[in-house]
Design a protein around this nucleic acid. Structure first.
Lengths: 264, 264
DNA sequence: CCATCTTTGTGCACGCGTTCACAAAGACAT
DNA sequence: ATGTCTTTGTGAACGCGTGCACAAAGATGG
């Protein structure tokens, strides 16, 4: 997951497994591409290849939605696009607000993938008074003070948080209090929300760290010394007893993993 | 995920499960925060709460790294920070290149979470000649022509792709050919890479779609009509036989899910 | 030195997700 | 109509991840 879900007890909602739901957008994207090329039908094998998954997995995923295929032929592209869109709730309009209009927030506001999927940016919100009124992606930025009003007026139920880590929980609380029940969080913090509110997290630095892990493993394996890591421990690492003696990580002040978004 | 991994057969590398690796950055972040507050030790319960996970899971995760805790006391914060950093490979310097300096690319270049974790932006690369030389985040953008040279000169093994979908595979191929073995992909496309190359994907619109699914489910349940979906099929949806008759999704030209980054 | 108390580390069971493999279903040709 | 061929849909097995619950380990106090 770029990104993972946030401790939901694997609610198999309506019988569709979480893992399947997470793949539906992938299928939808591949199907949309096929639809644009006017391909009428597609086999599970072809579609699976286009989506980068196993064909058996794809068929099982689709089986949760219903029997939408034709044996010996494959799946009707247009029909499947509609069914998946409907299942994901993309046939309706979802107004979203983006809070924190820094570099990342602006990039999100400009992101074309939202509008083309039924998501409409209802408002851009920032705590910086100097930002208020300034147009970003053709939309005037509004001040945080108006957050509650905006949520209610537009019936917003999905909020995107692109603020610095320090402000995220506070913004989150206000969003939830105003009626938002789904949050996409780009700030590097664990958000605490009441039951019934969904949070998904996208963390850029975490993804890189996972890559670094595998990269290190590759480098370590190819140099042949893939055995003893106990020896490595004893020489390079500070002993647990000598705590706080050597600050092994060269910390750079209280950065606290702040994203490069404009603060308040 | 925000994001998910890309079809790797769950390589339990060096005995550490993938799921655990994915959580290590979370622990590291929480520990770093504690370290800055000069907290000497922390219990699994406290740390788990700070990282937003189950304490048993955290203990099991740490058990894969070794016995770094002290029973009756907890874990030594500094020591653990070092061990996790080392395990993730963050004690060494990782030069990365960012390809595609649009809105998103610029946001990534400015992202502070990279530098503070051992990641160093070695170069910014864009296909637009007009961008060449222009400073972004204090670094002069270089043209795509120099991609191979940059990779080799700096010993870059991690690349970040923030180009439009159409250019992603091509950029990916060139990165891999030049020696990059780990790729973080922000373009909404499935990248094909040879064995030995890791790809992680961060897809903004997929995350929103997953939220929309749950949002729809919540709305549907509270309105009480949680039973028959078969009836819904018969009236609202086009029959599979009437293919290509009604373009149910109002497609908006060949957008193909292009992110709002500056093209080539 | 012993008792008590806290907290780790882990064996075990359970459930979800993935994959295999094949029967059922339909298209298509003869 | 009948047979063949393609492709779906799914039963079943397997493996990974998660969480419980507890024994082992060490700290702490008397």
């Amino acid at each position: 997951m770029a990104t993972g879900r946030t401790h939901r007890p694997a609610t198999r909602s309506r019988g569709i497994p979480e893992a399947t739901v997470a793949r539906l957008p992938l299928y939808l994207r591949a199907l949309t591409a096929l639809s644009e090329r006017s391909v009428p039908t597609v086999s599970s094998e072809e579609l699976a290849a286009a989506a980068g998954v196993n064909s058996a997995k794809l068929r099982k995923d689709f089986s949760y939605l219903g029997s939408y295929g034709t044996r010996g032929v494959g799946y009707d592209v247009e029909y499947l696009v509609y069914q998946i869109s409907r299942e994901l709730g993309l046939t309706q309009d979802w107004p979203v607000v983006i809070v924190g209009i820094g570099n990342l927030g602006a990039a999100l506001a400009n992101y074309g993938g939202f509008a083309s999927r039924g998501f409409r940016v209802a408002a851009l919100i920032d705590a910086d008074p100097a930002m208020a009124g300034k147009p970003v992606a053709g939309i005037a930025v509004q001040h945080t003070d108006e957050l509650e009003q905006i949520i209610q007026d537009n019936g917003v139920s999905i909020g995107v948080i692109a603020t610095p880590a320090g402000a995220a929980q506070q913004v989150c609380d206000r969003l939830v209090a105003a009626g938002v029940t789904s949050i996409l969080n780009f700030a590097p913090t664990v958000l605490t929300v009441p039951d019934g509110v969904d949070v998904r997290k996208v963390d850029l630095s975490i993804e890189l760290q996972i890559l670094a892990f595998h990269e290190q493993r590759k480098a370590g394996e190819e140099s042949g010394q893939g055995g003893s890591e106990a020896a490595e421990d004893l020489e390079g690492a500070p002993a647990p007893s000598a705590r706080a003696a050597a600050a092994t990580t060269d910390r750079k002040g209280p950065d606290g993993d702040v994203p490069a978004v404009m603060p308040a």
